[in-house]
Design a protein around this nucleic acid. Structure first.
Lengths: 242, 242
DNA sequence: CGCGTGATTGAGCTTGGTCAATTACGGTGG
DNA sequence: CCACCGTAATTGACCAAGCTCAATCACGCG
C-alpha cells in the first residue's frame, strides 16, 4: 500500500514541506526503545530524487521513514556514485552522532518521513536509558551493516551481491507476504549500491528469473521463488529464518 | 622506532600475555578526550597473526595500539577475506558499542596494546562528558571511514585504491618524517583491505615506483616522492594538507 | 495513442584475476 | 660473517567477469 504511494507522485506544491505530526502515522515505530520519541517528531514529505539533507549540512535532525524510501549517497567529483544504504518504511536514518553530514540523503520515491530534532532526542536519551541503548544499538547496527557491505563490495561476485541484496530486502520488508519484494529504486540505484553497472544488475536479475530463483513480477516487484537457493547464493553463512 | 619493534619478534614465551600497565607507554594517548582512561588499562602483548579477539566473542574490552599494528577481519565460509581496517600506534579499536564482536582482530605484526574494560570506560563516560563525546566521535569516525571504504571498494580503480590507501597511511603515521610510510602488513593484507589480489597490489606499487610517484625503499617501507600526484590519484577531493 | 524514461539485450573490450615461475629478503644456523 | 632456507614479493602469460557502447523494448504517463 505505501509502496503504491512510493511510485505515484504526491501532488506536492513544494518539493519539501513539513506539517505537524499525525498521530496515526507514528504507530508501530521501529524498535520499542524508540517509542518515546514520537512526540518530538514532525511529518515531512519529500518527493522523488529530492534531497533530505546534503553532504556537509549540519546534522540537526534525524528521521524515520513512514512511506516511500530513502537512499544515502556519496559522490566522487567525477560523478561516480555510491549508495551507502536504502531506508524502508519503519527504518531510522541520519542518527549518526556527527556534527556534519558526510553522506547526502535523497528520496528514492516520494517519501513520508518523520523528522526529529537531534538535540531533543539526545536530551531524552539522558533521561531514558532505554532510548540511549536504542541509539547505541542503531549506531553499532549501522557499523555492522557497513562492514557487511564492505565484504560484499570487496569480495562477492555480481550474482552473490544481487542475491544478498534481495535477501536483505526480503528480511526488512514490512509486510508478512513472504515472497514479494518491492524495489522502489531504479536499476541504477541498485547498481550504485552494489558496485556494479545497471546493465549487470539487469542481466543478473533476469538470469535469476530464467533460473526460477526469483520471479520478476514487474520491474519494481520481485517474488522470491526459492529463498533457500537465493540465500545460499549470497555467500555468507546467514543465521537462518527459513 | 616502534615500527622496528613491529617487525622484530618479541621474545614471547606465550602468545598472549598481559602485565600491569607501564606509565611510560601511556603517554601521548590519542585524542585528548581519552586522557582519563589510561588508569583503567593493562598492557597486552600479541604476537604476529595471533587473535586479539574473534568474531562472536563478547565485547568486554577495547584497545589502544602502542606499538605494532592490528587488523580487523571478516571472513566468508570459503575463505574470502576482508580486512576492515588497520590500526596503527596511538589508535583505538574495538570500541563498538555492540554486545558481540562481528569482526575479529589480529596482530599484523607483534603488537603492544593497552586493554580497557568496556564497562569501566562506559562508567567513566557517565561522569566525564568529554570522554563521552570522545566515544561518540570515535563511533562516528569509524562509520565515516567505513563509508569512504565502501566508495573505494565499489568505485575506484586498483591504482586509485592504492593511492588512497597510501595517503591515508601517510596522514595517520605517527612520526613527523613526512614522506616515509611503514607498511607493517603483507601485500595480501593490503589486497584484502582494498578488494584486490596481492599480485595487483604488487604490480600497482611497482608501477607507482617506476613512475616516480613513490619509492619502494624496502618491501615494508614506502617513501612518497610526489604527494600531490598521489593524492590526486586517489580520486576524492581531499581536504588539503600539502 | 504516442512519447520519454528506464529496462533489457547484444557485441566486443578492458581491467584485474588466475596460474605459474622466478626472485628477493629476513631469519637461522654453521 | 656468511651460506642457506622458507616465506613473501615480483613478474609474466593468459583468461574471464563485468564494463562500455549501442540498439531495442516496454511501461507509465500525458
Amino acid at each position: 500500500m505505501q509502496a503504491q504511494l512510493a511510485t505515484r507522485p504526491v501532488p506536492a506544491d513544494r518539493d519539501l514541506r513539513w506539517r505537524p505530526q499525525y498521530g496515526t502515522l507514528l504507530r508501530g515505530s521501529a524498535p520499542a526503545a524508540f517509542g518515546g520519541i514520537d512526540a518530538l517528531g514532525t511529518v515531512l514529505l519529500v518527493s522523488r530524487d529530492k534531497e533530505v539533507y546534503a553532504e556537509g549540512d549540519p546534522a540537526e535532525f534525524c528521521y524515520k521513514v513512514v512511506a516511500g524510501a530513502v537512499r544515502t549517497v556519496k559522490l566522487m567529483p567525477d560523478g561516480r556514485r555510491q549508495v551507502a544504504e536504502f531506508y524502508l518504511p519503519r527504518e531510522l536514518f541520519g542518527f549518526d552522532a556527527c556534527p556534519v553530514r558526510y553522506l547526502s540523503a535523497e528520496a528514492v520515491a516520494d517519501a513520508t518521513l518523520i523528522r526529529y530534532p537531534y538535540r531533543r532526542i539526545e536530551a531524552q536519551a539522558e533521561r531514558d536509558g532505554n532510548l540511549a541503548r536504542g541509539l547505541r544499538d542503531l549506531a553499532s547496527g549501522s557499523l555492522r551493516k557497513a562492514h557487511e557491505q564492505m565484504l560484499l563490495l570487496a569480495r562477492k561476485s555480481a550474482q552473490e551481491r544481487i542475491a544478498s541484496f534481495l535477501m536483505d530486502l526480503a528480511r526488512r520488508q514490512v509486510d508478512g507476504e513472504d515472497a514479494a519484494i518491492e524495489l522502489p529504486m531504479s536499476r541504477a540505484d541498485i547498481a550504485d549500491h552494489l558496485g556494479l553497472t545497471l546493465e549487470t544488475v539487469s542481466r543478473v536479475l533476469n538470469r535469476l528469473h530464467r533460473d526460477d530463483v526469483i520471479n520478476l513480477a514487474s520491474t519494481h516487484r520481485v517474488e522470491i521463488v526459492d529463498a533457500a537457493v537465493l540465500d545460499r547464493m549470497g555467500g555468507e553463512a546467514w543465521s537462518s529464518r527459513a
